[in-house]
Structure formats: structure tokens, C-alpha cells
Design a protein around this nucleic acid. Structure first.
Length: 963
RNA sequence: GCCCGGAUGGCGGAAUUGGUAGACGCGCUCGACUCAAACUCGAGUUCCAUUGGAGUGUGGGUUCGAGUCCCACUCCGGGUACCA
């Protein structure tokens, strides 16, 4: 029986007005989503349904979204995608009996609110508060199961107090490689007092140490000092030395300075020479800044990747960013300069025999000392040229080979041959030693350099044509390489490392691309450092919290100090002055997932008992764009807190899913250049036209609402529109990023208003695999809305009367239910959000066709719909007389017996082509199936007298007859 | 350049271990209802040809059987870059 209960209503409810409004009013009786969603939202709030408590004897599950920066623009349909996905999992796990932690909060320090403050004078806290309120109201519409009592805001003093506290611990710790973990600076002081630093294996900033040591002990300080030397130092001296060992430290370093933003930026905040936010130019500048010694954790950050379930691509991004390479550091003597030598890092010391010149970075410290007088003018011209050019060139991607011979020669350590020394901008000062040994036969960049400057290319590989380019294959066999002749590079490499070390001019070395991270910003709206200066020495302030002070303007002072220097009362509260910098955006986000576990704790950032209970985030959902920023820093801080035994795990996010971007479909109108005439899409190529974005709310099925367009853009009110044959103005379209500036934004509030939150949730999940980028198409939402309506009609008729009966369900209805439970359960377990919606649709279609209204079927059905359509599921669960909230309805189990069919219909293939369907008892043995199918007359017809060579019966699947 | 993805109807996508390719939804077509339209409901919808054939980016291979595995290539998306 097919349920058809709409007849009789179409005539009586006829009204006039916009299409969708009528449709909505007509539907209202059977599926009044507005009333349903309002009702259950209120109940959830009243009953604190989503409050999470630590329950020791229940297994926990921690599902987390990357918390948002609350921007003024609000949410578009792309933003909630990941939130919906995580909410589905949170609800499913809860129904499966897990004690679920599913919190949300705000990354509420940041530049936009401060830029707005600079323009308007409004305190960033007010802007932030307003934006959060708007976010919250939008999020509340979507029915998320967040425990809002655990909300965190990074800009709240109750929160950043602990960010400051963790900073203080980083300041008070260094990294002991021998122990493989962070240890207190106090422990280091004991060692220095007893033995000096000669046997020390702590992570150290060589430049900082050398600078400090040179000031204290003179120019010949080589990095090592004795206990006696240490013990006579005053506080300032010790402080300057210890700075080289702290995990949070002050250093003069080359930083990325962005003049437009008035602040320094970390490496991951600079993309292609421009600031990530705003796209402003960034220059290198030497400044005294707070830094984070993340490099101390490089190996552990690398190794930890093998223990976490993240996508390969994002792990790869982190591996590349860390950039570990192993090889050797080789020392080259310089002719006529016995007091100098050049250190070179190479991953390929096996190709040493092919090295015939050295190349230094133009900024290399030895360049000035060893350049010959005759080359001096040329060299300094080249240095200036590269310094001026570097940023722009990098952006342009134009990579001509440039360089300059400096007149000096190094000595080849094996052959004694003279090697000319060049400088070139393809060698970077910041990587390795800032110098390379050029092996033109083995490295393409060296090869191109040699070709460009007509330098010889000594062949070192058997059978390799030197004119065809460099040979990088490590299977190649070496020649002209002394003892290593005849070996493959793979075989020669370990020998080269060992033998050059034994010969005394090289040592094995591991090199990282990862740099320490700049940790201070010359901005107002960030965490103030708990630091003041006494006689220029930074001191922690720990007896009271350092709060962000009010200032009269959010701009640097006239002397160029950061905005905090304007806070006159504040800046003399301790010592000579306070630290005027603030922390970067990633400070608060590096540990927020811990605070959710114990958000109101006033004595600790998070109680150890609570973090032991909730543990790692089991599922982390967010964008992939944080690969080198947030995701690396939070791993670093987690490892640090683990080292201090403050938490019991050293990776924050056990599993992560990165949702893809939702793209918008933009619409365009075509204006004939320089006129006020618009031509329809079909005629755009007959003229020289300019394409203009048009707001998609003014376009339906690519046809423009002309009146609406004129009202939207008054400057075109008098424009002429050339229409197509159908008398319509047709717009062009393109799929691109969803953005306000492209006028292609779909707003979740509007869709909730028209279709309800449950429909929007289901539809966003239905679009396709979560991780994939996909275009938004609002038209498709009707289908999903229809599904929820159809679901409702199983439970009640068009007038709202209950249809549920207590009879015994048919075997077909039970099979449909259990098939759906199985598919939905399995798909949720493998995080296949989109196919779950399809499975539910199929189930509802089948039950509708069967005319099933049995409570025994419909009640479990409402339970499995709950993660996707929680409001409606509550309503239907209640209609079935279910106990309590569907949120806690036990997840139904499928019964394999109910899935069994008595008969199986096999597709029968002949030589791989399906010819007919063949029904046979499900429990028939393969041999019997074979006999039966061969006896069938249709088989005889297909074979036409031939004898089958082979018959393959795959039980339950297929029969293939070959012959 | 390198790294990671991906390519399936008009569109979004499904096919989980090699077993009926195109589930589910959109769109479209036809029909019912309607004075009419919308809504709703029903039927159809990979392509080509009248029993049949072709078909998952291209070319080859393995197999009784390939979207799925192997080899070579093309194109698209994302990330990243003189990293020695």
C-alpha cells in the first residue's frame, strides 16, 4: 500500500503569493519544523541536556571543532559544515553509551577587532563581544549539542591568565636532549655552577649564547665556558646566558616585519612575502623579540606524526615544514686565510669528489673578510642588489641565475685543489650554514649555476652525460671518486660520512628547516606578557595577574613603542617598565582543548584528574589551512606540558578530519565596456564586455530580476538591458570561493527560516564527502526537506493525527529497518557522513512503500535519525512514546537474522556479460546453484550447444559462465 | 619543479574485500490534480541503434570478471619551493 494522504487538501488550501511561502504553509500541518525546532531547543536548554560531567566508570569520547575567530561578517553555509559533522558524531557516540565532551568557544584575540578599534576608537572587547553574540545566535539555530557551560574565550582574563602561566613555565624551562624532555632552568643553573656548559646537551640558541658570551668574556668566546667563569657572573650576566637556553626567550633576530600591520609575524603567517592577513608586504628586520624554541622539539614533532591518525597530506605538510635532513657538515680551509674556514652542510657528502666550487649566501658573515680587493666593488654591488630584490623576486617567481665571484679560493679537503668561492642568492643565509659545496654533476641548481658562469662540471657518475643536467639518482655508480669508485651513491654515503669524519674535516649532522617561532606582536589585542624589566633584565610577574590595560589609542607611541606603552599607570607598576608586546594569535589556541576539560578551575589550567579522564581529543574537525601554524604549535605545547607531567599524553589530537571548502556559485552580468548597456549571457561575446558580479539572491535559474538589480545598484537604474529571445536577461555563472565580495554567499539563517535546521544539517552532510571541496547548490535542499517530510508522514497524517500502531511488523518492514540500521551504523563508524543520509532516504522510501506504521520499526528509526535531525527525531521519538530524550536513546543494533532473505537473485553472466537474472534458494550450496543454472533453459539458449569451460559461482554475488 | 589529492550521466555524488557501474538527491521529460500555474503525487531519465552494442580521463596489461589491481601518459584541484 502506498501512503497517499494529500488528496483533498490541495483544493482547500489554495492561496496566492510567492511560491515557496505557499509551499511552506501547505506543509506546515504535517511537518511544522518551526514549531518543532523551537519546542525542542527550549527543552534542551531548560533540561541542560548537553551538559557534560566527568563520569569515571563510563568511557569518554572527546569530539572537538576548531574554535572560530568571531569575525563581524557572521556565518555562511560553509562555516557550519564541520560543526554539523562533529555534532553528528558527538550525538552518535552519546547514543552508543559514551560520555561525550563536545564543547565550543572563541579564538577571540586577533587583528580584525583591533583594526576596527584603530578606525573607530571602539574597544576591541566590545566589538568582540558583539561578534560573539552574533555567532552564538547563529550557532544556536542549528541545534548543536555543545555544552556551552564549558565555553572558553581566549581574550577572557580567566582564560589568558593560564596562557600567561604556560608562557611562564616555558620561560622557566629549557630542553635537555640527553633527558629527551624539558627541564627547569634551575636544574641547568646547578649544572653550570658545577661544570660549566661543556658537557651540556641542552637545546641552545648559538647566536644568543655567542653574543652574550662575547660581551662577558671577549671576542674569542667559542661557545663553551667553565664553572668558574659562570660562578663569577652577576645577575645580568647569568640572565643573558640563560636566555640562550630558555624555551621562551628574548633574542635579537631577523624577523618578518609588516609595516602595514605594525607588527612582526611568524613564518607561517607570511605567505609568499605577504602577510597572511591582509596581504601586506613583509620585510626582514633585526629586532629584539620573544621567541619559542620549538626547534628543540623538532624530532619529537616529526616522530609523533606516526602515532596520530591525520590525513597524509597534512602530515606531509608538517614533515616538510620541519624539514629534517641528515648528512654531514664539512669544513673547507680558505687559501691565504688560515684563521678562517667555511662550514658547509651537505646531504650528499658521497659526491664530494665532484665539488669544485663553494657558494655562500650573499649575507654570509665571512664574505667581507675574504673578498679580495679587486672583487670588493662588484661583490658589494651584488649584495645590495640581492638585498633590495629578494622579496619582490620571490613573489614574481622569476629565477634567473645570478651570482658573483669573490676572488677567494677554498681548498678541496681530499684533493687539495683550489675551489673558487662565489656568492649567489640561491643559497639562503637562514638554512644550514648559509654555504654550500657546489657539485654541478649532482645537483641541478649547482649545474645551472656552473653552466651560467661557465664553470667546469667534473663528471663523477658512470655513464652520465654531463651536458644533460645533474644526476640525482642515488642508484648511480660513482667514478672519479677515489676509493668510492664503483660504489652506488647509496652505498658510498655512509662511508663518505664515516671517512670524512675520521679524516677530521667533517662531522655527521642533522639539519632542520624548522625555525624558532617569533612569539611577540606589537599589537594591543592579545595576551599581555607576565613580564617586567628590572635593569633591563626580564622578570616574571607571578604573584598577580597582568591584565590588558586600557589605552587612549590602539596605535604605537610616538617613539615607536607598541600600544601597551601608552598605558601610563600600568607600565610603571613593576620594575622599570612592563613588557609592551603582546602574544600572537596562536598562543591561546595552542592549549584551549585542555581548558574545556576544566573550564572554571581557578587553581590550575586544568586539573590532572580531569585531563586524565578526558584525555586526547578523539576526533578533531577543522580546516586544513592550519597545517604549519596552530596544529604544530598546539602539538609543541602539548609535548611541553607532558614533559612537565601536567598532562598524561603528548599528542593533542588523536584523529583529525579536515573538511573541504564549500564553494559558491557566482552570477554575472555583462556590461559593454564604457557604456551603460548590459547584454544577456548569450550575446556577451558579440561585444567587448566587462563581467560584474551580481547578488545571487537576484538571480533565479540564471535569470536576472531586473527590478531587483536596479534597486540593488542604483547607479545602473537607468541602464539598458539587452534581453535574449525569451525576453529574459540571462546571467553567466562560475563556481568560486564563497565570499561576501563575490555576492555568492548563502546564509544559514535564511535556509533555517525556510526549511528548518534539521533540513540544513542533513543537506550539508548530503552534499558529498566531508573532506572534498564542493559547490553549494540551494536547489538541491528541496530533496532533503522532502525526505524529512516523508519521514514525518510515517508517524502522523497531514492533519497531525498519529498513525503509529502496535501490530507486529512485517518481515519486509523489519528487513528495511535493520538494513538501514546496519548501513547507518557502519557508515558513521567510517565517517562517511554523506552516504548515511542516502541510506536513511532509502529506508524511509521502503517503509513508505510498505505502508509501515509500526511502533517497533518507527521508534528505532527515530533514534538513528537523531544525530542528523535532532529536533524532528525528538518529536518522533516522543510520538512513539519513547522514554526521555532521543539524545540518550540507545543506538539500535541490527539483527543479522532479520536481514536474511529466503531467495537470492543472481545475475548470470556469459563471458562477463549479464544475460539474465536467476532466483535460487539463499541456502543452496554453490554446486547446487551451478547445477540449477546450467539446467535452466536460458542457459542453453545462451550457450547454443557450446560446453561451458568454466562456471564461477560467487555465493550471494554473481554467476559467470565461460564458454 | 616537488609533494598530496582527484577525474564516474546534464549536475552533486554512490559502488567499503576485484563480482549486475550510475545507489540517493537535484535537474529534465511525460502523466495525474488544476480554468491555469505553483505545490503535491506517479512514471521515465548513461549514451547510441527497432532484438543489440558501447561505456567510469587516455593507451596498454593481469583476471572467468577491473571504476577498483599493475605499467605508461593526459588533464584538474590543493599544498609548497632556490632547504644544499
Amino acid at each position: 500500500m502506498t501512503v497517499r494522504n494529500r488528496a483533498g487538501h490541495t483544493g482547500t488550501l489554495r492561496t496566492f503569493g510567492p511560491g515557496y511561502l505557499r509551499a511552506t504553509s501547505l506543509r506546515a500541518m504535517e511537518y511544522d519544523f518551526k514549531a518543532i525546532e523551537a519546542k525542542w531547543r527550549a527543552k534542551w536548554t531548560e533540561q541542560e541536556t548537553y551538559r557534560a560531567e566527568e563520569v569515571v566508570d563510563r568511557p569518554k569520547y572527546y569530539v572537538l571543532d576548531m574554535f572560530p575567530y568571531p569575525s563581524g561578517a557572521g556565518l555562511h553555509v560553509g562555516h557550519p559544515l564541520g560543526y554539523i559533522a562533529s555534532d553528528v558524531i558527538a550525538r552518535h557516540k552519546r547514543q552508543c553509551g559514551f560520555n561525550v565532551l563536545h564543547p565550543q568557544g572563541y579564538d577571540s584575540f586577533g587583528l580584525p577587532a583591533e583594526q576596527y578599534a584603530i578606525q573607530t576608537g571602539q574597544h576591541p572587547a566590545i566589538t568582540t563581544e558583539q561578534n560573539i553574540a552574533r555567532y552564538r545566535s547563529q550557532l544556536d539555530l542549528l541545534g548543536f549539542s555543545y555544552d556551552w557551560s564549558r565555553e572558553v574565550r581566549t581574550s577572557s582574563p580567566d582564560y589568558y591568565r593560564w596562557t600567561q602561566w604556560i608562557f611562564a613555565r616555558l620561560f622557566e624551562h629549557g630542553y635537555d636532549h640527553a633527558a629527551g624532555k624539558a627541564r627547569p632552568i634551575a636544574a641547568l643553573v646547578d649544572v653550570l655552577a658545577a661544570k660549566g656548559n661543556k658537557e651540556l646537551d641542552w637545546a641552545v640558541g648559538d647566536d644568543t649564547l655567542k653574543e652574550a658570551g662575547t660581551v662577558l668574556w671577549g671576542d674569542d668566546f667559542d661557545g663553551a665556558f667553565s664553572a668558574d667563569q659562570w660562578n663569577v657572573l652577576d645577575e645580568a650576566g647569568r640572565s643573558s646566558i640563560l636566555m640562550a637556553y630558555r624555551l621562551a626567550y628574548l633574542a635579537d633576530s631577523e624577523v618578518n616585519w609588516c609595516p602595514a600591520l605594525g607588527t612582526v609575524l611568524a613564518n607561517d603567517e607570511v605567505v609568499g612575502g605577504l602577510s597572511e592577513r591582509g596581504g601586506h608586504p613583509v620585510v626582514r628586520k633585526k629586532m629584539r623579540q620573544w621567541m619559542m624554541r620549538i626547534t628543540a622539539y623538532a624530532d619529537r614533532l616529526l616522530d609523533g606524526l606516526d602515532t596520530i591518525d591525520w590525513s597524509d597530506s597534512i602530515k606531509e605538510v608538517q614533515r616538510n615544514w620541519i624539514g629534517k635532513s641528515t648528512g654531514a657538515q664539512l669544513r673547507f680551509a680558505i687559501q691565504d686565510h688560515p684563521d678562517h674556514h667555511i662550514e658547509v652542510f651537505s646531504t650528499r657528502p658521497d659526491t664530494l669528489h665532484g665539488a669544485n666550487f663553494l657558494v655562500l649566501a650573499p649575507e654570509h658573515e665571512l664574505v667581507d673578510a675574504i673578498t679580495t680587493d679587486s672583487q670588493r666593488a662588484t661583490v658589494s654591488a651584488y649584495q645590495q642588489e640581492t638585498a633590495a630584490r629578494s622579496e619582490r623576486e620571490r613573489m614574481a617567481g622569476d629565477r634567473g641565475v645570478t651570482g658573483c665571484f669573490i676572488g677567494a679560493h677554498a681548498v678541496h679537503p681530499l684533493t687539495g685543489d683550489a675551489m673558487p668561492i662565489w656568492i649567489a642568492d640561491y643559497v639562503l643565509a637562514g638554512y644550514g650554514t648559509g654555504a654550500v659545496m657546489a657539485v654541478p654533476a649532482g645537483d641541478q641548481r649547482d649545474w645551472e649555476f656552473a653552466k651560467a658562469f661557465d664553470l667546469p662540471i667534473p663528471p663523477i657518475f658512470e655513464g652520465h652525460d654531463i651536458d644533460s643536467g645533474a644526476e640525482s639518482d642515488k642508484q648511480s655508480v660513482l667514478c672519479n671518486s677515489g676509493d668510492w669508485n664503483g660504489l652506488t651513491c647509496n652505498a658510498a654515503l655512509p662511508r663518505a660520512i664515516a671517512e670524512t669524519e675520521a679524516a677530521g674535516f667533517a662531522k655527521p649532522r642533522v639539519n632542520f628547516r624548522l625555525r624558532d617561532a617569533v612569539f611577540s606582536r606589537q599589537r594591543y589585542w592579545g595576551e599581555p606578557f607576565p613580564i617586567c624589566y628590572v635593569d633591563g633584565i626580564p622578570q616574571l610577574i607571578e604573584d598577580e595577574q597582568v591584565l590588558l590595560p586600557d589605552v587612549d589609542a590602539y596605535l604605537p607611541t610616538e617613539t615607536g613603542d607598541p600600544p601597551l606603552a601608552r598605558a601610563e599607570q600600568w607600565n610603571v607598576s613593576r620594575g622599570d617598565r612592563m613588557e609592551y608586546n603582546t602574544m600572537p594569535g596562536w598562543a591561546g589556541s595552542s592549549w584551549y582543548f585542555l581548558r574545556y576539560m576544566d573550564p572554571h578551575n581557578e587553581d590550575a589550567f586544568c586539573d590532572r584528574v580531569k585531563s586524565d579522564y578526558w584525555g586526547q581529543v578523539d576526533l578533531y574537525v577543522g580546516g586544513a589551512e592550519h597545517g604549519t601554524g596552530h596544529l604544530l604549535y598546539s602539538r609543541f605545547w602539548t609535548k611541553f606540558l607532558f614533559d612537565l607531567d601536567l598532562i598524561g599524553f603528548d599528542e593533542p589530537f588523536a584523529k583529525m578530519i579536515n573538511q573541504g571548502m564549500i564553494l559558491g556559485r557566482s552570477s554575472f552580468v555583462y556590461r559593454i565596456e564604457g557604456t551603460n548597456r548590459f547584454v544577456t549571457f548569450e550575446q556577451r561575446k558579440d561585444h567587448r564586455t566587462q563581467r560584474l558580479h551580481v547578488d545571487i539572491s537576484l538571480v533565479k535559474n540564471d535569470v536576472l530580476n531586473l527590478e531587483g538589480f536596479k534597486a540593488w545598484r542604483p547607479e545602473f537604474a537607468d541602464a539598458e538591458f539587452v534581453l535574449n529571445d525569451a525576453g529574459e536577461y540571462r546571467c553567466g555563472n562560475e563556481v568560486e570561493k564563497m565570499s561576501k565580495s563575490k555576492f555568492n554567499v548563502e546564509n544559514p539563517d535564511d535556509l533555517v527560516e525556510r526549511y528548518g535546521a534539521d533540513t540544513l544539517r542533513c543537506y550539508e552532510m548530503f552534499l558529498g564527502p566531508l573532506e572534498q571541496a564542493k559547490p553549494w547548490d540551494t536547489q538541491g535542499i528541496n530533496g532533503v526537506h522532502g525526505f524529512l517530510r516523508k519521514l514525518t508522514r510515517l508517524y502522523r497524517d497531514a492533519d497531525g493525527n498519529a498513525l503509529i500502531t502496535d501490530g507486529l511488523p512485517s518481515a519486509e518492514a523489519e528487513r528495511a529497518l535493520h538494513k538501514t540500521i546496519k548501513k547507518v551504523t557502519e557508515d558513521l563508524d567510517r565517517l562517511s557522513w554523506n552516504t548515511v543520509v542516502s541510506a536513511l532516504m532509502i529506508g524511509v522510501n521502503e517503509l513508505t512503500e510498505l505502508g509501515c506504521h509500526d511502533r517497533a520499526v518507527l521508534q528505532p528509526l527515530s533514534a538513528i535519525v537523531a544525530p542528523y535531525a535532532p529536533h524532528l527525531a525528538e518529536e518522533l521519538w516522543e510520538a512513539c512514546g519513547g522514554n526521555g530524550s532521543v539524545v540518550d536513546a540507545p543506538w539500535p543494533k541490527w539483527d543479522a537474522d532479520k536481514l536474511v532473505e529466503s531467495e537470492v537473485t543472481y545475475p548470470v553472466q556469459f563471458n562477463g556479460k549479464v544475460r539474465f537474472q536467476f532466483a535460487v534458494a539463499a541456502d543452496a550450496a554453490p554446486a547446487d546453484v551451478e547445477a540449477a543454472v546450467l539446467a535452466d533453459e536460458r542457459t542453453g539458449k545462451q550457450l547454443q550447444g557450446r560446453t561451458p569451460k568454466k562456471v564461477i559461482v560467487v555465493p550471494g554475488r554473481i554467476i559467470n559462465i565461460v564458454g
